[in-house]
Nucleic acid binder design. Structure first.
Lengths: 241, 241
DNA sequence: GCCCTGGCTGTGAGGGCGCTGAGAGCGGCT
DNA sequence: AGCCGCTCTCAGCGCCCTCACAGCCAGGGC
């Protein structure tokens, strides 16, 4: 199943802070890797924009150090691509000395901070820490349907003023519905998203969990946000029922 | 920019997407207004919380960009007031750099997303778009015939303002007709599409289901959208009867 | 007006679909 | 070890959907 609850601050166990360094100068990249590891970070390296973007997409990094001048795909394009995909991982850009690009470009492209080469290692670490410290902010927006709200990052759900406690499975199910309000989702589609891409089990689990959800988000409020569409699937009313 | 309502035929002429910016720093407000207008949004400005709240109440905005620090009425209070009135317009909050308030407060108060100053303009636009996309999901394929509407994704049918409940079979049948309005469909063709490619049964089912449909989509409205073409099949009037 | 053919509809059986309560398995926490 | 919460299976139940059937109605040709 999907580890939906990893990395959630309140989940408790400490997790290594993961940094991705995208830098084509091999010596600089390795120096950074060694240094940051010594600081206690988990560091991955990419030597071109393409693999950098790929890695940033796949793994959940806490920050990305991104050179501007890169083979295959410039740092700008990598950053822009990430932002376009609603990936708000904090990005610290490294510019060429005084290149054709300037700082404003970097920020316009969605970077969170900017450093011009040559830079002092100490400054880089300081800025990185600053980014991480205030990196709680780049969190995904809250989903809403009527007075139903779901905060994906905080794993919180509320209806009106009332907080609602959901189990991980229930939460994942509701999140799927809230990302596609007013759309009928078939049981197989639900199974594929909330359970596993090739889940081989009784589709009845879906009915069971829809039932659980209804008891928590609808019944106590006399609402009917989660609707059955017989023969087709289920639908979350975009107005919250 | 891309008109958010594209593909919704009955939406009539594309309506501008309206954004309200509530920001007391005049220069920032104007910069935002210029930038967002260049993106194709219709932008209104308020320089304090009171007029901001007033405007948000009066006009139907698609989103509100709301600074936290405002004269007369803080962004928090504005947002809380809107939510208390069951106004669920998407709100994007702009926090002071690292002020006394923090992000959690913003979300607790009912904001949908949160950005800390200084922010990158690109990120603001990206988040704004994300908010708009979520709140106004442009579900292109809505079929229409006169005042008859069928939304395949939502599995919903309506005539005028009235929602109509259809069984799966009825829905499939009507969908076939609405995809080919004004066209005469033979019973065998209908059987092949709505039932099974090689259905071996009484073609009378078609008559039966056409009857069911008429009782739901025509009779209550005194219309005749589903017409019999004796000896040939049935036709759905493209103008809804 | 009569007849024939094709279309319409009321009735009812049967079965599929969705809902729910009970409970077993599992893992985490104390 | 014991408890608790989460997940998921299973079986029973009830409703609604589907469809066959048969009798009735309407259109059109003569």
């Amino acid at each position: 199943m999907r580890p939906l609850s990893y990395g959630v601050p309140w989940a408790g166990q400490a997790r290594a802070v993961r940094i991705l360094v995208v830098e084509d100068e091999v010596r600089l990249a390795q120096a950074l890797q060694r240094g940051l590891r010594a600081e206690g970070f988990a560091v991955d390296i990419a030597h071109d924009g393409e693999t950098g973007l790929h890695l940033a997409r796949e793994a959940a990094y806490d920050a990305v150090v991104l050179d501007v001048m890169l083979p295959k795909l410039s740092g700008y394009r990598v950053c822009r691509a990430l932002r376009a995909e609603e990936n708000w991982v904090p990005v610290l850009m490294l510019s060429a000395k005084d290149g054709e690009y300037d700082q404003a470009d970097g920020l316009d492209v969605g970077a969170d901070d900017y450093l011009t080469k040559p830079f002092s290692y100490v400054v880089l670490v300081a800025r990185l820490r600053a980014l991480l410290r205030r990196s709680a902010p780049p969190r995904p927006p809250v989903l809403g349907a009527g007075d139903l709200r779901l905060d994906p990052a905080a794993h919180r759900v509320s209806r009106g003023q009332t907080q609602i406690a959901l189990t991980p499975r229930e939460f994942a199910l509701l999140e799927l519905f809230m990302r596609r309000p007013d759309e009928v989702l078939s049981k197989s589609e639900i199974l594929a998203h909330v359970w596993d891409a090739h889940y081989e089990g009784d589709p009845n689990v879906v009915e069971v969990y829809v039932g659980y959800l209804r008891r928590k988000i609808d019944a106590p409020f006399g609402r009917r946000a989660l609707q059955t569409v017989r023969g087709a699937g289920y639908r979350l009313a975009g107005n919250g029922g």
